[in-house]
Simulated assay, not measured.
Amino acid sequence: MVLARCCFPASVKMNVALLACLVALVGICLARSDAPRGVAVPFVFDLKATCDPRCQHAGICIRNNTCFCSRGYEGETCQYANCYPKCKNGGECLRPGKCRCPSGFGGKYCHKVKCDSGCWNGGDCIAVNGVAKCICPSSWTGSKCQEAICPQGCRNGGSCMAPGICSCPEGWLGGACHTAVCHRPCLNGGKCLSPDSCRCRPPYSGPHCEERKVF
């Protein structure tokens, strides 16, 4: 039963029957286990009582500067909403049963760890010193576990596309993009050092080591 149902416009004087209704309702509410804190039993209602500042959220001024709070609110002027269970991980109770969660947490009572955009590639979202963070499997890294790890590295402008696998630019190949590609082979024992560039063994020279020097 809600106390607000016995409220009436301030311009209308409370009659005896309405006062009896209010006292009966308050007596019932006080018997509940969730009765607002700070109100003693037996209940005493002073018609001439004033509360400054005024009682908030439908609270009733029962004695001078003493508010009787409606269910879900508490505080000297009923200014604080009450969430049960209480908001966790630094969450703020906005209204009864409604929490505003800090960054990194979610759920009705801010009890769930929440990583922005989630954790990719099998990463787990956990709280580390109160901050939501992705814990990545051994082959991935980055804030969302979005970056693959190539233990051998990717050389010559290559990039790691998947664990241990490099994507190589044109002219390079190999597990670490370390092998140059010469479309025309290097002759006479020459070695391809960079794309289409050969290092020749003496006495040979030329783009593909095809020329023999004459001494």
Rank of each mutant, 00 (worst) to 15 (best):
N65T: 08
G122F: 04
G206S: 03
G118D: 02
R71S: 11
C209A: 01
C29E: 15
V128W: 02
G118Y: 02
D46K: 04
V2Y: 12
A4L: 14
A35F: 06
L30Q: 12
L18P: 00
D34G: 10
C182G: 10
G142E: 01
S138T: 15
R37L: 09
S11I: 12
Q56V: 07
G91V: 00
K13F: 07
G123R: 03
C55W: 02
C125Y: 08
P207G: 02
S70Q: 15
A35V: 11
A20F: 01
R37Q: 12
G90S: 11
K13D: 08
C166K: 13
F105M: 04
V214N: 08
P102R: 12
G157K: 10
N156K: 06
M1Q: 10
Q56E: 15
C125T: 12
C209L: 01
K144A: 14
E76S: 15
E210T: 03
S33F: 11
V44Q: 12
G91F: 01
L47E: 13
G122V: 02
A162P: 08
I135M: 08
R5K: 15
C186T: 05
V113Y: 05
W120D: 02
V23I: 13
G175P: 12
L3R: 07
P203H: 07
E92H: 13
K112A: 08
T77V: 14
L19C: 11
T141L: 05
S138V: 15
F43H: 01
G153Y: 05
A17C: 07
D116G: 10
R71A: 14
R37G: 10
E74H: 12
C61T: 04
V128A: 11
S197K: 14
Y84I: 11
K88D: 12
H111Y: 09
G153Q: 05
Y73H: 07
V113G: 09
C83E: 03
V23E: 14
C125S: 07
S103D: 15
W120H: 04
F43L: 08
V39R: 02
